[in-house]
Computed example of a mutant assay.
Amino acid sequence: MDLSATGVAPKDGKALAAASTTVVLWASAFVAIRSAGEHFGPGSLALGRLLVGAVALLGLLVYRREGLPPRAAWPGTAVSGVLWFGLYMVALNWGEKQVDAGTAAMLVGIGPVLIALLGGWLLREGLPPKLLAGMAVALAGAVVVGLSMSGGGGSSVRGIVLCLLAAVAYAAGVVGQKPALRHATALQVTTFGCLIGAVACLPFAPQLVSDLAAAPPSATLDVVYLGLFPTALAFTTWAYALSRTTAARMGATTYSVPTLVVLMAWLLLGEAPEPLTLVGGALCLAGVAVSRRS
């Protein structure tokens, strides 16, 4: 039964906890990527992260004896693996090397809008008025955060295109993943999506070997952290929550990521946010609250 159609999904405590875990861990990934990106190329960083995640997920899958997903789940799993686990990670890693963090967050912030539009069209989820209103408020907040953080530097056209490509890949991957979750568990879909993404990134293996040889231990630990937590754990909790609500509502939840990134950068990197950034963050959270009530 589709819980989102019954009104249970927004009040599902486990799903909400899973979504919250995902948001916090994905926000922490921006800090780790910033550190690891100084020593790893975009492709090698994505491959290293995915390999660590795939090993951890396969181990858990064997432990739980869940086995292979049913045949009906493979098309959606493959789409999410290639587009979200593979293309999205490489494009975002590359784009953030050429544009500042604020601009990247603002550009990738169109992802939830695309998820809602694609979900409403392809998955027939509809577009409730409160969801649209919440998305509009949250998107405005993401734009404010992006503008407040984009201060001094200029953005390259290539970097902008790469961040937009990441947003499209993210949205398409989520919409592709949703049908797979009707036939397989969150762990199965995440494990094989991650594995497919790693296979798609294998051309970067020589660069990964070279980067690992030259990188300091702290950067390698960043890659391990990214694989275990923002990838293995966070993508599994995401899939669990997505199986219990609509793609559009889950996409709207991620609008709070930029706000958390600002707070983490403030606490961990000593980068104090501008007042305008705090206003944008408040709008993001307000928009998420409205969208979850739809």
Rank of each mutant, 00 (worst) to 15 (best):
M1N: 10
A5C: 07
P10R: 00
A18Q: 10
A19Q: 15
A19Y: 10
T21R: 12
S28M: 09
A36L: 12
G37W: 07
E38I: 13
L47S: 08
G53A: 13
Y63C: 07
R65Q: 13
E66W: 13
G67K: 12
A78K: 07
G81Y: 04
F85G: 05
A91N: 06
Q98P: 04
V99E: 00
V99T: 06
V99C: 00
D100F: 08
A104Q: 02
M106T: 09
V108G: 00
G109P: 01
I110K: 12
I110Y: 01
A116P: 04
A116Q: 09
L117K: 13
L118Y: 03
E125F: 05
P129V: 11
L132M: 15
M135L: 14
A140L: 15
A142T: 14
V143L: 14
V144F: 00
G146K: 14
G146S: 11
G152Q: 15
G152A: 10
R158Q: 11
R158D: 03
G159H: 01
G159E: 02
L162K: 07
L162V: 06
C163D: 09
A167P: 00
G173H: 11
G173W: 03
L181R: 14
A184F: 04
T190C: 05
T191D: 01
F192Y: 13
L195P: 01
A198Q: 07
A200H: 05
C201H: 08
A205T: 10
A205N: 11
P206L: 02
P206T: 05
A213T: 09
S218T: 12
Y225L: 09
L226E: 03
T246I: 02
R249P: 04
G251F: 02
G251I: 08
A252Y: 01
T253W: 04
Y255D: 00
T259E: 06
V262M: 08
E271F: 09
A272Y: 09
T277G: 13
L278N: 10
G280S: 10
L283D: 01
S294C: 06
